[in-house]
Nucleic acid binder design. Structure first.
Lengths: 133, 133
DNA sequence: TTGTATGCAAAATGTTTGCAGACTG
DNA sequence: CAGTCTGCAAACATTTTGCATACAA
């Protein structure tokens, strides 16, 4: 994620809070919620407000740079949209999230939408699982 | 949904609020949220509290009698789990929900979970769509 | 009669917003 | 310098909870 390019392209000011938040987002390989991201952010700059994290997350989601998920109840969780589309297995015993991708399933979804006269805007497939005994 | 049997089986008291809420749930063919259900409930008995609706919904979801969905942001929405499993197409222009089912997709999900060493507890597939021009 | 269920209001949770001041371009 | 961003606190939306009372079994 090239931070400066990203802001320039979208007519956004490259402020210090944004630099820090984008740095944290670039360095994440999990699916944290806003509070967890804020924790990581204030470790770098303790002055940054949770509201700013929310505002930035919203902005980035609108620009398609982040994906927002609602796994089960609780706060929304985020991941960067810079890697190709995939779906999620959620281990309900640990909360861990495993990414997977099935072209076959993607194809079937297209077909279903088409059959109903729609085109797909986005979709979400979550499989809640438990380790097999 | 046989209301009395349902309560008896689960060790629940058949109170007036529960009777009314279950009646409303039985007569629904859409995917309303708690506030909407409460509106329908107080049309029958104006004294029933929103908190009771929430408590009852939670109970029924835990018993597997209701399914709770989180389509996009906003409040959770419910549907009765008395008809066979299916997934949802959500028309983002109207908010309408269309149910569908694909055995092929179900099968592929099983396979994916198994390949990762898990068994499926539940899953959720939502396709957000727009009418094709 | 005993414990479960209810209504009400308050609390909890997650997120957004108004505002006055700070900072970027 | 103009207009965007920020921190803060308050507002908001949804859901849960504590408590005294009502009610089903």
């Amino acid at each position: 994620m090239d931070i400066e390019a990203l802001c320039a392209e979208n007519g956004l000011r490259l402020t210090k809070p944004r630099r820090v938040i984008l740095q944290v987002l670039a360095g994440m390989d999990d699916h944290p919620d806003a509070a967890e991201l804020h924790r990581r952010v204030i470790e770098i700059d303790p002055g940054i407000a949770l509201a700013t994290v929310y505002r930035t997350l919203r902005l980035l989601e609108e620009k398609g740079i982040l994906e927002k998920h609602r796994f089960g109840d609780g706060p929304a969780r985020f991941e960067s949209a810079d890697h190709p589309h995939h779906d999620h297995l959620i281990n309900i015993e640990t909360g861990d999230v495993i990414e997977f991708r099935s072209d076959e399933i993607e194809r079937l979804q297209e077909e279903i939408a088409r059959r109903h006269g729609f085109s797909i805007v986005s979709h979400r497939l979550e499989i809640y699982v438990r380790p097999k005994k």
